[in-house]
């Protein structure tokens, strides 16, 4: 299978604190890959390294075989990788439609144009409206994003991420802070909108992870201790010891 994302011996330290040490990871085209791990394992940091938000301390990141190490976030996005954020990161003072449209503009080839009227760009409008339809916010088109409900903002977060039609989508805890029903809806949304794309997802909800992912990587203290299919991960004693066991204990206590 063709490798879409490849991490080669990636390291990241903040000052003297080592957050990621020596992560190797390969994710194939069309794969739904989940990254799990206890709090503080470095999952979000790993995302920030892949998407260019933070520079790497050492190692290499490849996207579709090309080295993207050290590129700026917008450069990585233009190469077809789009990400969402764990803490909702939207344009609060713009309407839902405008939020989505911001996600569409670059990929529709508008660039920094100041000679096109944005309302007259039929392709941009069509794609933005289609995306709003898909995330179920079409009725909220002209509402300011800052006034949406939390679940709606999370859906918008995913909408902005997929609006540009990126082939690789990184979602950082799309169900964070959601109720059971909201989570189920959000996961259905994720399943639909990432059809035919490569999906990487950080998720805490084990039910979700094992239901959705083709393969799972377990990140513990900045290292990938196991990668495999859901069955392999479930059966892996190291994972049970390091992570699932701890989690089971937590749930048992709760």
């Amino acid at each position: 299978m063709r490798q879409v994302i490849e991490l080669r011996d990636v390291h990241k330290s903040f000052g003297t604190t080592k957050i990621i040490h020596g992560v190797n990871l390969a994710i194939g085209a069309g794969e739904r890959h989940a990254i799990i791990g206890p709090n503080g394992a470095g999952k979000s940091t790993l995302y920030n390294l892949i998407s260019g938000r933070f520079p790497l301390s050492a190692g290499q990141v490849l996207l579709n075989g090309e080295d993207i190490t050290g590129l700026k976030p917008h450069e990585i996005n233009r190469r077809g990788l789009s990400r969402s954020f764990q803490v909702t990161n939207i344009f609060h003072n713009l309407s839902v439609y405008e939020n989505i449209r911001c996600g569409v503009l670059w990929s529709a080839g508008c660039g920094y144009s100041f000679w096109h009227r944005v309302g007259g760009l039929a392709e941009v409008r069509r794609r933005a409206e289609q995306t709003m339809e898909r995330i179920g916010l079409a009725r909220r088109r002209d509402v300011l994003a800052g006034t949406l409900t939390y679940a709606e903002q999370r859906a918008l977060e995913i909408g902005i991420t997929i609006a540009g039609g990126a082939s690789v989508v990184l979602l950082d805890e799309p169900t964070a802070g959601m109720s059971r029903t909201e989570t189920a809806q959000a996961i259905e949304l994720v399943r639909q909108v990432t059809e035919g794309k490569t999906l990487v997802m950080v998720e805490h909800d084990m039910g979700v992870v094992f239901g959705l992912a083709d393969r799972i990587s377990v990140l513990v203290y900045g290292e990938v201790i196991a990668t495999g299919t859901p069955e392999e991960i479930r059966a892996n004693p190291a994972v049970q010891e390091a992570y699932l066991g701890a989690l089971h204990k937590e749930t048992a206590h709760a």
Binding site: K72, H74, S82, H92, C102, L105, I160
Partner: peptide, 13 residues
């Protein structure tokens, strides 16, 4: 509104 997100939709702020 949000320079960081603008970077992640492909724009050099």
């Amino acid at each position: 509104d949000n320079p960081e997100r603008a970077e992640f939709v492909g724009y050099n702020t």
